[in-house]
Design a protein around this nucleic acid. Structure first.
Lengths: 365, 365
DNA sequence: TATTAGCACTCTTTTAAAACGTCTGCTAAT
DNA sequence: ATTAGCAGACGTTTTAAAAGAGTGCTAATA
């Protein structure tokens, strides 16, 4: 291993490492010393580069797929590269503006923002884009309304502060007078607005058990509603992934197997949800903007050949979800990281605009 | 061209054609005369088969990718094959039961049936499954409600007879008293239930223009609502496609280009929607159960290497949507056709159960 | 007259060998 | 410490040959 003039040497070593990663991301084929010496690092001879690369290999940053033939970055190298980039990333104002414009055009009104945002992410990155919303039960309720459908059924409509609108049928088995439905709606909204769904549930249970007079006649309805409220959770958290198709375009024949594996996971939403939930926690705790998980850093086996670039989004001061892209390890991290960050901001903006509307409280009668 | 004993000859010719198609669907490589003579048609010599195949080629049923090397079915051959199959298809009771059970488990309550159905279709067929719902504007309204969000905004919730629930924000710019909102809801529901959205819109315009006293004070709100009602149409019709990932699994390297093309189309929903709308019309008119479009029979260029098996579903006596699968031309038509048919029935059943609930009318005050 | 066996020919696919290019590791010179 | 130069390694591409599969035609057959 080379020694002497430690800072200078280290500097140069890292520079070479960065070049290898960068070149590899672009060309997707092993990088040799000559190539580097000729293209990027004209002031260092290929022999020197060779020596340094050997050191880097010993340190676990590079990997030689065949005895003779260039070297490829390991996950550790990507990790270094991404960490290095983290400070640098900034998007050209022009680019930023272009994306913001597209966001306004394509996402627009707060109807299915999550879906649309994930599509736009996919579109702009050329990889798969996702938007994930943590457990609905932990989200703050903006409104919970009931529409009478007749036939002993109500349609519950839940609106959260993050703009999600969910609805599900509640079967009572008998019809409820419209006025009673209204009473129920008004009562619930007056009481639970501002709580999380979980809190609301607990609160309502208490309230009913306490046997308050004004809800006596709708108590059993409320109970039924509470029971059904759990149901949306069966699907797990909300997760949109789009643009898997586009990945076919940017993937090389050789990497199809990786892609296949990935698809398998994506179809199996449960596990991915789990992973994202965890990642969200990490990210929130670390306080970082954008997180990058590279290959083997992902616990799920099938994802060890892809990278995930993700960011959280907040409602008020609560972190309620994540968004990002899933793509090949050799992606353009610089670009993608800024993109994800920006989209996160835009999504947050979109939600807080929606949220500026204070969930109007009817006074119940 | 062979002549003589016309019926017998024709019979055998078709038999050979069917075998070629069937073998090709399984092996995905050109079928030669020897192969057939050895495997399936042991009582006819390869030479005879050769002669007949030549005839079939002249008639446009088979195609020789290389001067020497087996033959491949043309779209015309698939068409013949599918038509032949149409009479035969029937699913084993056992299989049917298994699928019905899965449907109950996985689709269940009428919450996002369309999405879930398309996922199940994909899952069971190994190809991409879709469910398409025709223009919302032509669907019968079951309810149209408004929830006050405050900040000069209402959330409109539209429930159609086919079980679709749509919602969109209506910005009024000023707040409406809760009682007024209720009045609006009740009035609208009492009047328009049972109309299509389009009819409802026309009706309401007339009503407002006529200046009826009881709606005078909410007229401008109604106008705004009507305007915003158009919006959901911007997305075009509702279309869910799932399972594109799974197609990777069943596709061979060589056919990836076809797959890529297909994905491109799917991302571009507009055109696909158009195609499906047309197809739905054809299907409804012909009165057939299941339609199969093979390769070049699809107008869209990018879809000329895939087949679409589709069926319609009804609400009452109105055909409101389609469902089916998109897959490789060489798919197991027998299986897929029965599957699509069955899923259509199940979806219809699911909707009509929901629809048994009569959109409860409040009498407005 | 329809069917079949046999054969020469064509064309793709597979296999093998050779030529090429790129990279490494080492050594000696700077 | 760096560099130039060179031998050896190994993947990739090119080229050539062999194998395999199928066709069309003709002559024999039932």
């Amino acid at each position: 291993m080379r020694v002497l003039k430690p800072e200078v040497a280290k500097e140069r070593k890292e520079k070479i490492l960065r070049w290898v990663v960068q070149q590899f991301v672009e060309s997707r084929r092993p990088i040799g010393s000559q190539l580097l010496a000729d293209s990027a690092l004209k002031d260092i001879s290929s022999a020197t580069i060779r020596n340094i690369m050997k050191d880097l290999e010993e340190e676990g940053y590079l990997y030689q797929p065949h005895t003779s033939g260039g070297r490829i970055p390991t996950d550790k190298a990507y990790r270094y590269y991404v960490d290095y980039l983290t400070g640098i990333q900034r998007m050209a104002a022009q680019e930023r503006e272009r994306i913001e414009k597209q966001y306004d055009e394509r996402v627009g009104e707060l109807d299915n923002v999550m879906l649309k945002t994930s599509r736009l992410l996919a579109h702009l990155s050329g990889a798969a884009g996702f938007v994930y919303s943590a457990n609905v039960a932990d989200q703050v309720v903006k409104r919970l309304d009931f529409l009478p459908l007749g036939g002993g059924t109500l349609l519950a409509v839940l609106i959260t502060e993050s703009g999600t609108v969910r609805h599900w049928p509640v079967r009572l088995g008998y019809d409820l007078a419209p006025s009673k439905v209204r009473l129920l709606s008004n009562f619930i909204n007056a009481e639970i607005t501002g709580m999380t769904l979980n809190e609301a549930q607990k609160f309502l249970w208490q309230y009913i058990k306490a046997g308050h007079r004004e809800v006596a006649d709708i108590a059993d309805v409320a109970v039924q509603v509470l029971k059904d409220m759990q149901k949306p959770r069966a699907d797990g958290d909300e997760l949109y992934i789009e643009g898997l198709g586009r990945m076919l375009e940017t993937t090389e024949e050789a990497d199809y197997e990786d892609l296949r594996q990935m698809m398998r996971i994506v179809e199996e939403r449960q596990r991915l949800s789990g992973l994202l939930a965890e990642k969200m926690d990490d990210l929130r705790r670390s306080g970082k903007d954008v997180a990058v998980s590279i290959g083997s850093e992902n616990e799920i086996k099938e994802l060890q050949n892809v990278s995930i670039v993700s960011s959280t989004y907040r409602v008020g001061d609560r972190t309620v979800g994540m968004l990002g892209i899933i793509g090949p390890k050799h992606m353009q991290y610089t670009k993608v990281m800024s993109l994800v960050k920006l989209m996160g901001d835009l999504l947050e903006g979109s939600i807080s605009a929606w949220n500026a509307l204070p969930g109007k409280e009817d006074d119940y009668e």
